[in-house]
Design a protein around this nucleic acid. Structure first.
Length: 856
RNA sequence: GGGCGGUUAGCUCAGUGGGAGAGCACUUCCUUGACAUGGAAGGGGUCACAGGUUCAAAUCCUGUACCGCCCA
């Protein structure tokens, strides 16, 4: 007997512990790869707080993992934590109210470890409470020695292949975090600014006015540019202008990339204001004039006056530079505007809104500085990368276009060095030996992981090398997540070659769409460079969880919903239900309504099972499969065959949907079967016979077999979505003597379509019976009568060419139907109805007319 | 400016060539031996708009509008 009430709190925690103890989710390393389903789980960024979005996306992956496991796969489902890198450093600086630059490197890193461990504990607790079917023995951290080793092996492989290079060149620079950044870490922000118009004297007389939003870069000006269609082209082309304040002569160039609509149509090229300046600087081989340092402050411009940086008034230029030295960009801008104004060099100023590239993490406007950085080659591989992307199945497919668009628009090779602390160091030193000064010395693979600041390359003494002080971009490590799991990077660079063969490439990458340009792209790039392979067979892109009003949840808006309260009120199964109702790629609003529906489903499952449990009391038979029990003749009643056939259709549809990652469709068809067919119709129709009110012991047995199968299969169909309640019911009702501890979630326990019983005739016949039942319900509802109200009689008149069913077949419906509609007299096509006030209704398909007479 | 997705009942959404649907909400009724956290019946839609293809369009094509996202 099943309890009256379902208490999710005790049941959920009970099973979570039990499942972990039993090793249900373990990956079997001994099996062939063909049986495996390998998930490249997203290691959550340890950002310091839990978000309902974590519940949403991680549960969707678990729905897939649970289905695949039940469908028979040897599922490899690890969990990682992306704990290194800038996001973690920012978390540490914020929560501990410290700055990395104020501490020793060792001390800062020690505190980082402390903080990320605490944050990981919170994630782990949430994931366990959601019953993610993760094999926790496979857990990894991107900062662990193992991950550092894989990440450094990756760097060594790319370095040997010439795909990783170090170069002094203009690079995106975040002056707030004081590090280089990659193109993917740039976000455009609309910022209020000012457009100033500043006249330059022309060497041969006259003047030309430029427009700029960044007057503080005036000192870095190395050319003026005009569009080919500029009205003064003939006069200006190949001429020379003199910058105000600094008196530096600069050439006037003609270039089609100048936007003639902006400002005055004359623009200054500075080293560097933005990416287009870099283009011009390269194309026209312009001199490098640095005025901003790594902290985003103005330099003293010591180089002015040199051969590459002449001034017609050196003393004046140095005086201006001195008055700006050390100022922040913003302060320098104000000051130089004041000076320009004072000296009559400002023609006009007007406010504008402009798009400014900013650092994704710190939010600071980016500068472009010339610094030595490590780059991974990508620009020369666009076509191959697009083809790799096309060899992967994208769910939904249109997300592939975002990837392709990103690859096509790449402007920079991938800069992976960061001037930070908590990350994977580069396994490189620079030689100080006289004959090979500056030569890059790579670590021996056998020595990895190394820390060049503490370790030495083989054969070198401490005074003979300069260590590389940088750490890798966090994505440089997370982009080898498949290899962190597989223990190998490329031939000859393996920790465990056999394991690598079994786990690489992986089967599925689940991830969100905003990191297609980073995580997905970088992972594809690395696998391409390492082994010329795609890292996975499939990629599933989840949507975002939005606030109930469909706005984006964000800390600044204060509308972030955390999972704890919802878990407490509804339990994990109900949250998982909400997650399962939306499709991949589609954003979903958190909806209290949907949670309530999920809660009702859990309750209904419980109550329907209690009822079936009553019917199955003392049922000692050993059911086989629905199909076998029908073929053995144990299930023979018309409505029993009908519901089993409907069940078979449901299994087929749900299985096909799950194979395509359409868990929402699988849920929908299962719910429809359970609520409408099973609970509302079948249970009402079968009640009397199951209780033994009428019929034979064989017909009662048929009902019991059918109830057993329906419930057993429907619980298994719901199991990936509602793991706790289905396990609890299943363990109470169906624990077989042979395998009492077998979990409903066990590998291979998904109901197989070929084990089901499908019979089109039985479906048609049953549907006819259900239509009669619906018609009688309608007649009773029209008169506001109780459904129990008995009928004197009921006659079903089939349309001329309706009722392709034989009278014998129809008679199979009679016992259950008479009991359900409450009559002792049910006839087919009776042309002479007995006495009584006749009321009738025609079914919507017009196949039949149902006539009844009430007792009063 | 380019690309992608969306626009279907009051709300949230499913439906990709042939009946316009589900849940929630709403109205009326039913305390029936699993369930009132239930059940039955019912009202409610110009499928954003305009053209086109087709015997037939929510569905395919073209364009427009609006919303969202990605990238410049």
């Amino acid at each position: 007997m099943i309890d009256d009430k379902y208490d999710f709190k005790t049941v959920e925690s009970k099973w979570q512990e039990q499942w972990q103890r039993s090793g249900l989710y373990g990956w079997n390393a001994e099996e062939a790869k063909a049986n495996s389903y390998i998930i490249d789980t997203p290691p959550p960024t340890v950002s310091g707080f839990l978000h309902i979005g974590h519940v949403y996306s991680y549960t969707q992956t678990d729905l897939i993992a649970r289905y695949r496991r039940m469908a028979g796969a040897n599922v490899f489902y690890p969990m990682g934590f992306d704990d290194n890198g800038l996001p973690s450093e920012r978390l540490v600086e914020k929560t501990r109210n410290i700055r990395a630059s104020d501490l020793s490197r060792e001390e800062f890193i020690r505190i980082c470890y402390e903080v990320v461990r605490g944050a990981e504990d919170e994630f782990r607790a949430l994931f366990k409470q959601l019953a993610l079917s993760v094999d926790w023995s496979l857990e990894y951290q991107t900062i662990s020695p193992h991950s550092r080793k894989i990440s450094q092996l990756s760097a060594l492989d790319l370095f040997r292949k010439g795909e990783l290079y170090r170069q002094l060149q203009p690079t995106l620079w975040d002056p707030a975090d004081r590090t280089a950044l990659a193109q993917a870490e740039v976000v455009e922000k609309e910022i209020a600014g000012t457009m100033w118009e500043v006249p330059f004297r022309l060497a041969h007389g006259g003047e030309v006015t430029i427009a700029t939003t960044r007057p503080e870069l005036l000192g870095a000006c190395c050319a003026l540019l005009i569009h080919p269609d500029h009205p003064r082209r003939a006069e200006l082309e190949r001429g020379e202008a003199i910058s105000p304040l600094y008196s530096v002569p600069v050439p006037i160039l003609v270039d089609a990339q100048v936007d003639p609509q902006t400002g005055t149509g004359v623009v200054m090229c500075c080293t560097f204001g933005d990416a287009i300046d870099v283009d011009w600087w390269r194309r026209y081989k312009l001199p490098l004039r640095i005025v901003i340092d790594k902290t985003g402050r103005l330099t003293a411009m010591h180089a002015i006056g040199g051969a590459d940086w002449p001034s017609l008034d050196l003393a004046g230029a140095r005086a201006v530079a001195a008055s700006l030295t050390g100022l922040t960009i913003r302060a320098a801008r104000e000051k130089i505007v004041a000076i320009l104004q004072e000296r009559g060099h400002l023609k006009s100023q007007k406010p504008i809104q402009r798009m400014v590239p900013c650092a994704e993490r710190s939010g600071a406007p980016l500068e472009i500085l010339v610094t030595p950085q490590w780059f991974v080659r990508a620009l020369d591989k666009k076509q191959a990368l697009i083809e790799k992307g096309r060899s992967i199945r994208w769910f939904p497919d249109y997300m592939r276009l975002r990837y392709e668009l990103w690859v096509e628009n790449l402007k920079w090779d991938w800069c992976i060095s960061r001037q930070r602390y908590f990350g994977v160091p580069f396994p490189f030193w620079y030689s100080k030996r006289r004959d090979e000064e500056g030569r890059i010395i790579a670590a021996d693979p056998a020595d990895l992981p190394v820390n060049p600041l503490a370790d030495l390359p083989r054969g070198y003494g401490p005074d003979e090398v300069e260590p590389d002080p940088d750490v890798m971009d966090t994505w440089a490590t997370s982009s080898v997540s498949p290899q962190i799991n597989s223990y190998g990077v490329a031939p000859g660079l393996m920790i465990d070659a056999q394991r690598h063969r079994k786990l690489f490439p992986a089967t599925l990458r689940p991830q969100a769409h905003e990191i297609i340009r980073t995580w997905a792209f970088y992972t594809i790039l690395k696998s391409h460079l390492h082994e010329d392979k795609a890292p996975w067979r499939d990629i599933a892109i989840s949507g975002w969880c939005r606030a109930p009003d469909r706005s984006k949840m964000s800390k600044s808006k204060g509308n972030v919903i955390t999972p704890e309260g919802l878990l407490d009120r509804y339990g994990a199964d109900v949250l998982r239900y909400w997650t399962a109702t939306s499709r991949l790629g589609v954003d979903t609003a958190l909806s209290e309504d949907v949670l309530k529906v999920g809660k009702r489903l859990v309750t209904k499952l419980w109550n329907a099972s209690r009822f079936a449990g009553l019917q199955l009391e003392g049922f000692a038979a050993r059911p086989q499969t629905p199909r076998a029990d029908c073929e053995r003749g144990l299930v023979a009643a018309a409505f029993d065959c009908w519901i089993l056939s409907r069940l078979a259709e449901t299994v087929t549809e749900a299985t096909a949907a799950n194979e395509d990652y359409e868990f929402a469709t699988a849920l929908r068809v299962t719910e429809r079967f359970f609520w409408a067919d099973f609970c509302d119709n079948y249970l009402e129709l079968v009640k009397g016979r199951a209780y033994g009110d009428f019929g034979t012991s064989a017909s009662q047995l048929s009902a019991r077999y059918t109830l057993w199968h329906c419930l057993d299969v429907v619980l298994r169909l719901f199991a990936p979505i509602l793991p706790h309640v289905t396990e609890e019911i299943s363990s109470q009702l169906f624990s077989r003597a042979a395998a009492p501890d077998r979990s409903i979630h066990a590998r291979g326990n998904w109901p197989r379509p070929e084990d089901q019983f499908r019979d089109v005739t039985a479906e048609t016949l049953g549907a006819t019976g259900v239509n009669v039942l619906a018609a009688v319900r309608k007649l009773k509802a029209n008169r506001n009568l109780s459904l129990k109200k008995p009928l004197l009689w009921c006659n079903v008149a089939f349309a001329e060419n309706g009722a392709p069913l034989s009278p014998d077949a129809l008679d199979g419906l009679r016992p259950d139907l008479m009991h359900a509609i409450g009559t002792t007299k049910l006839t087919w096509n009776n042309r002479e109805p007995p006495l009584g006030a006749v009321e009738a209704v025609t079914t919507p398909d017009e196949a039949m007319r149902v006539e009844v007479a009430f007792a009063d």
